[in-house]
Design a protein around this nucleic acid. Structure first.
Lengths: 233, 233
DNA sequence: GTAAATTTGTGTTATATAACATACCTGCCA
DNA sequence: TGGCAGGTATGTTATATAACACAAATTTAC
């Protein structure tokens, strides 16, 4: 358990966007109901069909939201970085989770009971607008993803995945190495293809000098060309 | 142009869910800013990349929200029936539309400027919760659709489309005829396949006595089996 | 520190579905 | 009334990608 003073520090520094929407007494309510949990690599935070109870706030690490599909296939739907919120959609929809969330790597998360969040929303319209905004952006992303994943060819889908990783987790100081190191399988699950095809297509990109690969370390060499592949072929 | 009294009637009867969240003075604001527009069959209501300005309320008819994809392919994302609201997501996300909306058949729509809606939300938390709820349900649907469209086989996807049409537009008094008559092409665009394959697979379903087809009229004979096909093969 | 398990890599085959070609049907309007 | 456009139907071919099989490399566990 972490001391109260540390709580305050973490949430006031990192939860900026949502935090700033709150009045002093509301901040107090959040602080009082905030609990911190650590997750190991690949540990599940919540699973499909669970009842949504918490608003999760990723403080440290990386998290994937995914859905188990047909056979053993998995589709990664969204990726989270500090400090982003998730786990609230199903609660607001009054339905069980339709997807699962797991830590990509050792991660620290904050949790606030959704009832508390809902009460806060009822008395604070900036907070309501925060969630309306988040949901709206996610829905647009999900709609766009439908078309990309169903209509683009393998190369386009993998290019999309790489570009998403750049956007989401950024690059090292060398301005080319992806900050996330993920398995070929996760890469495949992100871009709707088999692991073999992720490996093969990644290899093709290396041959074409678009990227450089060393184990799970990926260096982006030709981002412009990746964008072209995402758009056309 | 329709008389004010008729306005009041339409919106108080049909806009029930959102309408009931409003206080008398807010209802007045909506009424004063409400305009009615008729759309012909296949007429576009708004298009991708347009700037979102209006909250649309479908009063009569049927509307499809779709996205133009690669080549000439189209993906139908959502269907609307009276009385449902759409067109607000992009506004809340502060981005241009990522999809288009068009009338399936001659339709009557109400329009309210999004600025007015946003002002109302800022002063009315029930209204905010209405949108949070709608967005949350749509996002769950979109996430589920991603997996269905990418992982299910053609038969499962077409079965899904038929079940969606039942759920969305219902059946005639005979409790078997779909209330919506759509082209094979639209059916294909709903279930991510070519028109040829929609025609063929529909034919297969007829052979298997799951449905009966007379032109665009579709009778659902064996819904249980359609559900099985949606789930497995 | 060595065995076991997992991940990565590569070749081959199988198959679902798109692409293409063509014909027919049906309503429309000139 | 006849031809034209749009939609429906069906057969054939092409192809992108999954499925499978196996070997090598790397990580994990005891």
């Amino acid at each position: 358990m972490i001391k109260k003073s540390t709580f305050e520090q973490i949430i006031s520094q990192d939860m900026a966007e949502m935090w700033s929407a709150l009045r002093p007494n509301e901040k107090r309510i959040v602080t009082d109901n905030f609990s911190i949990q650590n997750f190991k690599k690949n540990q599940i935070i919540y699973a499909e069909k669970d009842n949504p109870e918490m608003l999760w706030c990723l403080l440290k690490g990386k998290v994937k939201m995914y859905k188990n599909g047909i056979g053993d296939r998995v589709q990664i739907l969204r990726l989270y970085r500090p400090v982003q919120y998730f786990g609230y959609r199903a609660y607001f929809a009054r339905e069980p989770y339709v997807s699962s969330a797991a830590a990509f790597e050792p991660s620290t998360l904050g949790a606030i009971p959704m009832e508390v969040v809902e009460d806060l929303i009822k008395g604070n319209n900036d907070l309501a607008m925060f969630f309306i905004h988040e949901l709206s952006r996610n829905l647009g992303g999900s709609d766009t993803k439908i078309v990309s994943l169903t209509q683009k060819h393998i190369r386009g889908r993998l290019a999309d995945a790489l570009l998403l990783l750049i956007e989401n987790y950024g690059l090292e100081d060398d301005e080319s190495t992806l900050k996330i190191y993920m398995s070929r399988e996760d890469l495949a699950n992100l871009s709707n293809m088999t692991t073999s095809n992720a490996i093969r297509t990644l290899g093709a990109f290396v041959n074409e000098k678009l990227i450089l690969v060393d184990g799970r370390r990926i260096k982006i060499i030709n981002q412009a060309q990746l964008r072209k592949i995402s758009k056309f072929g």
